[in-house]
């Protein structure tokens, strides 16, 4: 088909479309209902009784703050990097709070190890973390996937992984509000490990093209 003919055909199919909102508005549109959904789960399960006191402790507040920042920046990266004129470097933004998150927990592990020795590290199986993160993260993940489908994910795999990192980081933030696991090694392996597994799985999934980009 000649290009001029193609242009005529496209012109004949120029149905009105609803333009995407700016990234900042879409970020709010994801974060507010996602955070509300997490709050509902926490309210139903029941927040841990020492929550207020925990937030006064840097060992709890810093990783929680970093988890929340990771969620927000990863969501921003997912929503903006997939646009045709999106900057690819924004996909690296969540690494900053993620590094703080991992660094803080790793630092706590190190001190626990120095203080008590490796075999005395408070560590054991906590399989509840995986379904816990999946449950708390279900609504944020579903919302994120729905929003990404409306966009044009040119960097498809990277934007989906960022989106799922956003959802699972938010889920982990919520999980620690009711799941009283404080040992850094436990959080590092079971909770952040779960976040990593879900994010990597999202990267391995094949997402069918919707139309031709």
């Amino acid at each position: 088909m000649e290009t001029e003919r193609l242009i005529e055909v496209l012109g004949a199919h120029a149905e009105p479309v609803r333009p995407l909102a700016p990234v900042s508005r879409r970020l709010l549109a994801w974060f507010v209902p996602a955070a509300l959904a997490v709050a509902v789960v926490v309210a139903v399960v029941g927040a841990r009784p020492d929550l207020i006191a925990k937030f006064a402790q840097p060992d709890f507040a810093i990783p929680q703050g970093a988890a929340l920042a990771t969620a927000i920046l990863a969501a921003f990266a997912a929503l903006s990097a997939g646009l045709p004129d999106g900057r690819r470097w924004v996909l690296w933004l969540p690494l900053v709070p993620l590094t703080v998150w991992l660094g803080n927990l790793g630092h706590q592990c190190w001190w626990d190890w120095m203080r008590s020795g490796f075999t005395s590290l408070p560590f054991g199986p906590d399989y509840a973390c995986i379904p816990g993160i999946a449950l708390v993260g279900l609504v944020p993940a579903a919302l994120m996937v729905a929003m990404l489908r409306r966009g044009a994910p040119f960097h498809r795999r990277a934007t989906i992984m960022s989106g799922i990192l956003a959802a699972t980081a938010l889920a982990d933030f919520g999980l620690r509000l009711f799941h009283p696991v404080d040992a850094a090694a436990m959080v590092l392996v079971w909770q952040i490990g779960s976040v990593a597994v879900f994010t990597l799985l999202a990267g391995l999934l094949r997402f069918p093209r919707r139309g031709r980009f």
Partner: peptide, 13 residues
């Protein structure tokens, strides 16, 4: 041109 047509909703004025 075909891709532009498919993703024209992603352009913001």
């Amino acid at each position: 041109l075909l891709s532009l047509h498919a993703v024209r909703h992603t352009y913001s004025p």
